[in-house]
Amino acid sequence: MNRLHLMCMHAGRLAGWMSEMTALRFPGILLLAGALGLTGCMRYQQAPLYQLDSGEIRVPAAEQGIAVLLGPVAVADYLQREALLQRQADGSLTATEDARWAGSLAADIDQQLLRQLASRLNSQRLVLAPATAGFVPQVRLGVSITRLDSGPQRPAVLEAQWRLAGADGKLLDGRLVRLEEAHSGSIVDQVRAQSLVVQQLVAQLAAAVETHGKPAPQVAPAPVRRPAPAKPAVPDVPRIPVAEPIRSEGEVFRF
């Protein structure tokens, strides 16, 4: 019994020691994991956020300006993210760790096109596709952006295609576009350069809408000239010969 009691006591002490060690070790592990996670979160939150710059735009004053249906606006898959990508010298793309977009770049592009185009056309009647009920566009503008990026040693490049159609769907104009803008290499200047190529694209779109979207000038019809009333026909009256005297030695009359 004494030996058995001793064995039970040693077993109890061992279990207690193991419990104490577990209690001491686990909080340390949890604290270390929490510290690492907090450091990662702080590093992620401290990364500066960027948006494309609209440039000098104003709120349109004309409520009855040209009606434009903008869209669909297709953006390349690799741009539909918050990561700010860097184009390397070999053409590859890498996500920068110390900067990112403030939200979805694709959504920002949609809003930039809409607001800048409305400002340039001075019209409140611009709607992103799909059109709302009751909206009747005068022109339809579709845009497809296949590239928008830059890198420390690569310029900002925008590649796109746009198509302008009338209210009846007939193609009025369209173009393939490649725009470039140099920069100093910093992230801030890269975002500035990318903003400029987007503004240049909007300038082309606005020029096309202004050229083809305005209705043809109405030409006033020429006044109808009524023919002058015909004069009544005068019947021919036989002319009576007039007697002319011929002066001679005698009075002779010739008819």
Rank of each mutant, 00 (worst) to 15 (best):
K214W: 10
L176R: 15
R81T: 07
L171K: 12
L114Y: 07
H212E: 03
I29M: 11
R87T: 13
T39V: 13
Q190W: 02
L93Y: 12
A207H: 12
V198I: 15
V237W: 10
R100Y: 08
A222F: 09
A102F: 12
A222S: 13
R120H: 07
R225Q: 12
R147S: 08
P217F: 05
P238E: 05
K170L: 11
R192W: 07
M21A: 15
K214N: 08
A216N: 10
R225P: 03
I29F: 12
M9H: 08
I57G: 00
L113R: 03
L85I: 08
R175W: 05
L14P: 02
R25G: 11
S92C: 07
L148T: 01
T211W: 09
P227M: 07
R225K: 13
Q190H: 06
V224G: 01
E20T: 14
R87W: 04
G134N: 05
V198K: 00
R254F: 09
L164Q: 00
Q138L: 04
A11T: 12
G71D: 06
V143E: 00
Q218A: 15
G12M: 11
E63L: 10
G185F: 06
L30S: 11
A193Y: 04
L105F: 05
W162R: 03
Q111V: 08
P229T: 11
C8I: 15
W162A: 00
V127Y: 08
V143H: 00
R100S: 06
V191I: 08
L126P: 02
F135S: 03
Q194I: 02
P227Y: 04
G55D: 06
V127N: 03
L128W: 04
G151M: 02
P48Q: 03
P137T: 02
L114K: 12
I29S: 07
R81M: 03
I66H: 01
V127K: 06
V127Q: 15
G103N: 04
L85K: 04
V73R: 02
G71V: 05
R192P: 01
T211S: 11
R13G: 06
D53P: 00
V224T: 12
M1A: 14
A230S: 12
M9E: 09
W162V: 04
A89K: 13
V202G: 01
R140A: 04
A228L: 14
T22G: 09
A220S: 13
I57K: 04
A35H: 06
G71C: 04
G174H: 09
T96I: 12
A230M: 10
R175H: 09
K214S: 10
Q194D: 08
L31K: 08
E159T: 11
V143M: 01
S119I: 05
M42R: 13
L205A: 03
I57D: 01
A107P: 03
N2G: 10
P232T: 05
S186I: 07
P227S: 06
L158W: 00
R58F: 10
P235Q: 08
